[in-house]
Design a protein around this nucleic acid. Sequence first.
DNA 1: TTGTATTTAATTGGATCCAATAACCGTTGG
DNA 2: CCAACGGTTATTGGATCCAATTAAATACAA
Lengths: 235, 235
Amino acid sequence: MASTGKQVLVTLRKQIADGILKGGQRLAEIPTAESLGVSRMPVRMAFKALEQEGFLTKAGRGYTVRETSPEDITGAIEVRGVLEGLAARQAVERGLDPNVLPTLKQCLRDGDALFVKGHLTDDDFGSYHDMNCLFHDTIVNASHNPAIAEALARNQHLPFASVKALAVDPNQPEREFRRFYYAHLQHHSIVDALERGQSARAEGLMREHANTTLNYADEEQQNERSRRIRRKTSS
Amino acid sequence: MASTGKQVLVTLRKQIADGILKGGQRLAEIPTAESLGVSRMPVRMAFKALEQEGFLTKAGRGYTVRETSPEDITGAIEVRGVLEGLAARQAVERGLDPNVLPTLKQCLRDGDALFVKGHLTDDDFGSYHDMNCLFHDTIVNASHNPAIAEALARNQHLPFASVKALAVDPNQPEREFRRFYYAHLQHHSIVDALERGQSARAEGLMREHANTTLNYADEEQQNERSRRIRRKTSS
DNA sequence: TTGTATTTAATTGGATCCAATAACCGTTGG
DNA sequence: CCAACGGTTATTGGATCCAATTAAATACAA
């Protein structure tokens, strides 16, 4: 039983993330309040919060759902790369807390156990997702630089840009397997660099690791683009 | 005649930035609303916005003014370095817009004109500040990556961390002159790298350029620390 | 004397009301 | 026929009211 305001906030956020509220669409307080069955007040609060989070932009009277171009997404992933790279470097330079390496190595073992079978089930993707979040969060926290986490929080919102929002294409299981396996091998290299105190190497690896997501997002763009073209030619 | 809500927001923001509202201080809606002579509603809105901006943190009932440690500031400046470094690199890699280099070179000429005298007046510091903001904004915008500007906007709030908030120590004019002159020489190197298409060099220079501020903040910390020690020993 | 539980008070969050402003449409004048 | 001005309408922003939750204080029991 979360409070009404939080409920409205997460509902709207999910509707935007899921594309139910399309980019560019105008949002007024009264209709959304009525459709959610609440008063205008929590909606006002949620709109303000969503504006700060970058989901909505104030357009004269009312708000419009922000439209994210593919360039926005690739740019945000690039930002995530340099920020997580900075986190890895600073984590090494400050000296790792004693619990960091054990946690990361457990992540590596968990990932290894997933990949030995040679294929990934839906549950495996979920497990990988959890492990991946823990891995990245651990490194970001190990930097002891709260500004990094704050700056990253801004990017979490864009689809594909966040660590938490890794999408899986169910039609290409073997390609997805290779993609995640490659990412996991990068995790191994990153831990190796952290363990050896190679801060610059850790930073570079972490940047490239974000680029792995970037390449995938690019392919998604390609698919989307070709799909659009196909649609256009077929009409 | 700005709207009441905005007025409350900027007032509270300024009071926090100026230290009138000290770090760790608890803020309740009713007292602040009464002290500002408005109703509770704009204060609620402002509190929510200030929480999103990182000025306030929700502490059970009500909010507390966030206290920024020196480590927070150095960390934020480090973040600014990698973000502006990324901006410089991407600006080169995407190809500079035709108006970027002329704008930057005008900044260099304006700076050169300030430093030829060998000393800086108060007006000169103001001119340098404006030129400096234009220089950095131009590079960030030249990256055509809106995620960078958004991530940077988060850091603007912390004192010393932002480009816009460069402090000048009036007691050490010649030291300040050397500091700004060094920063300006870095500007020259950065423009040189941009012009030659040396993206990695531009990135590294931009990072180091933020570090110049960082060193100053460190000295501020040292001063503050020694001041505190002096106070402690004298008591 | 200390810890826990209950009660009370205060503060926050939600709803409704009212005013102010901005957008849209119609009409009129050039 | 187009543009500009005025009116009307709808939507946002501010204020007040009410309920719910939480924190603090006091009292009671161990």
